[in-house]
């Protein structure tokens, strides 16, 4: 009993709510994420400069329509996420939940389109170490290597973001996150915008540099 109450005391004293600290923590974490992708961007641009012709050819092989639709989907999802936070801050729990649900739907649409793009390419025999791939130009191998790595890692971030939004919805529903205590949902929003931001760079890098 004594132990238990000491722990309770400890938790009560330790776990104070500091939205500013949460924000600082999240932003520093986002720097980390930005540099994670930053290293990949460096690799991409180094190889773009050494294999320009191959990269431009491969870029033309990607489906620009699908890429463009995904860009619109993700940008819109950032909007609905931002609106969800604004709605909660104004005390409109129901609207906030609906907007987050919409964000989730957009996330799903994005991943489904990505799935079709990938499976189409794999169906054509374009994947790492495939018979077709190892016989193509070196620049092509690098382009698709980076394509699968970067869009794959980005897709993973979309999935993680979707899970975070689910948790945020749960917290809003149960009242853990509300009008005056919205640090969590705000941070989920920040993460979601980063996922969006990374795509804004990935789209032109992979889809638009071709002929």
């Amino acid at each position: 009993m004594a132990n238990h109450s000491a722990e309770m005391h400890e938790h009560a004293e330790h776990g104070h709510y500091d939205p500013m600290a949460n924000k600082i923590g999240m932003w520093t974490f986002l720097f980390t994420e930005a540099l994670l992708f930053g290293a990949l961007f460096i690799a991409f641009f180094v190889y773009l400069s050494t294999n320009t012709g191959d990269f431009l050819d491969c870029s033309s092989e990607l489906n620009r329509i699908m890429g463009a639709i995904n860009t619109v989907v993700l940008l819109t999802s950032s909007l609905t996420m931002a609106l969800a936070i604004a709605a909660l801050q104004r005390g409109n729990k129901r609207l906030s939940l609906n907007l987050m649900l919409m964000t989730l739907v957009f996330a799903a649409v994005f991943l489904i389109i990505k799935y079709f793009e990938w499976s189409h390419k794999i169906h054509l025999g374009i994947y790492p170490k495939s018979e077709l791939m190892v016989n193509r130009a070196q620049g092509d191998q690098l382009f698709y290597g980076l394509y699968y790595t970067m869009t794959g890692l980005h897709g993973l971030h979309v999935a993680i973001g979707a899970v975070l939004i689910l948790i945020a919805m749960r917290k809003v529903q149960t009242g853990g996150v509300h009008k005056t205590k919205f640090s969590f949902i705000e941070n989920v929003g920040l993460y979601w915008h980063l996922v969006d931001l990374v795509w804004i760079y990935l789209f032109p890098m992979f889809y638009l540099i071709g002929r």
Binding site: I42, A43, V46, Y47, T50, N51, P128, K129, V134, A137, Q138, G139, Q141, L142, Y144, G145, L146, Y148, T149
Partner: peptide, 17 residues
Amino acid sequence: FVGVAIFDPAAGGDPIL
């Protein structure tokens, strides 16, 4: 593990990178 071409010189990769 997956065979993605990134640093492998045989696939045009750059070990110095």
